[in-house]
Design a protein around this nucleic acid. Structure first.
Length: 174
DNA sequence: GCCAACGTTGGC
DNA sequence: GCCAACGTTGGC
């Protein structure tokens, strides 16, 4: 268990990321300047490469299965928001960008015969009619416990509960 | 194993 | 651009 997550357990019981498991629902962060929901829709499918955080990697490697649903989040942008959904269509395989010296995600310790990082394949991009902004998420009483909304939470891949997933979809499509 | 220094994430 | 809150690295 990642001890840093325990720090969020102040007062009210808040679930740690691990305690959400097993889940069929996820939230995946991406910077829209790098890869957006429109890019996913245009390309149909995409390898989710470049993840370089162990906990996020472990979620992909050990828990993401075909058919799992994804909330697609735009970070580091003018209005951070969940902008749509997607689906996992291929489970984790080695991430070759790790040993590609020209890749921004190059990891000098990685070799093809010892691949430390992995990637899943995401497809079925669907764009919400109205993006659900971070501010809107924070205002929703039913989403109080979402990992995304916790102070200091930076995980780029997070488990989401079924209820949270459905509430967000309703907000985005409603 | 401790912890200071450093690099990164990501909201604002 | 600022900076809080992380995660990682590496000396000791």
């Amino acid at each position: 268990m990642n001890s840093t997550l325990k720090r969020f357990d102040s007062g009210v019981h808040l679930k740690t990321a691990q305690e959400y498991l097993p889940t069929c629902y996820w939230l995946m962060k991406t910077e829209p300047d790098v890869f957006s929901i429109d890019d996913l829709i245009a390309r149909k499918r995409e390898h989710w490469d470049g993840v370089r955080n162990y906990q996020a990697r472990n979620f992909m490697r050990d828990h993401m299965k075909c058919g799992h649903k994804v909330l697609f989040y735009h970070s580091n942008t003018e209005i951070p928001a969940i902008v749509g959904t997607a689906e996992i269509i291929e489970e984790a395989i080695p991430d070759p960008s790790a040993w590609n010296k020209k890749s921004p995600y190059y990891d000098p310790k990685a070799k093809p015969e010892n691949a430390p990082w992995c990637m899943v394949t995401v497809a079925k991009g669907y764009k919400f009619k109205s993006p659900v902004s971070l501010a809107a998420l924070r205002q929703n009483k039913e989403l109080e416990e979402m990992l995304l909304l916790r102070k200091g939470q930076r995980l780029s891949i997070q488990p989401v509960s079924e209820k949270e997933f459905e509430i967000v979809v309703k907000l985005g499509t409603g």
